[in-house]
Amino acid sequence: MEPILQLEHLNHVYSPGTPFEHRALIDIDLSIEKGSFVGMIGHTGSGKTTLIQHLNGLLKPTSGRILYNGEDIWISKQRIHQLRFQVGLVFQYPEYQLFEETVYRDIAFGPKNMGLDKDEVDRRVRDALRFVELPERILDHSPFELSGGQKRRVAIAGVIAMEPEVLILDEPIAGLDPESREAILRNIQDYHATRNNTVILVTHNMDVAARMSDQLLVMSHGSLYLSGTPEEIFSQTEALEQTGLTVPEVTQICDHLRRRGVPMPRGLYTVEAARDALLAMRGGSSHA
């Protein structure tokens, strides 16, 4: 496994030299493997959005380096422009940035900026639409007459259409109903599975983070507080609770059982794993 993105001693200070000065990122060292699915969690204001905006060069680090495929991204202006297409970033509430007259043209905005020819743009728009499971007839509609969940998916398609090597999503399921939530998560997972791209998913939902990621990053007060596999992270219930986070519901139940004397292993975070552990305890027999 080789790293696709590396951060070295990254610091970011907002409005330096004013009363509003704020150290949003403090000495972040981080390496993200090619093809991995990375979940990022952290309390409100912990610096998640600030961090991911560094990954595609929207924010310039106050100090420290960002390497993409081993190469410093800040060597030239053209490099940054290129990087925007290689590292696709879906902002929080992306539906508020739709602006075109039709869904088609909005999704095509990114690919067109890449300078692709018409056929290629067309292919990418239709591909992206398929990933977010929207019907083709929607392409001629105005994005403003869609439902909230549909708008969100159109906005995500707008970034997917650039076919980025790294797809970053900032809380893509915030404020949606459970059905749309599951659909969007499924789309992201499909995209990851089909394209084998790297995905970074920022979320407040522990169950989602646990179930989807290979690697979890926990941010707290501008620092990278914990990093590891979901199993490693969720076996540290106390450490997580100290930064105002919780563990997934299943893990909470397992912790509870352990306190009551049931010898549950630590770090279980899926219902299936918990079920298997319980069944194993009953002597390995399963009548399911």
Binding site: L58, L89, Q97, N113
Partner: peptide
């Protein structure tokens, strides 16, 4: 925010 979002799409 909007400027950032459109820049992220290569604007």
């Amino acid at each position: 925010k909007i400027i950032s979002a459109q820049k992220a799409r290569g604007a």
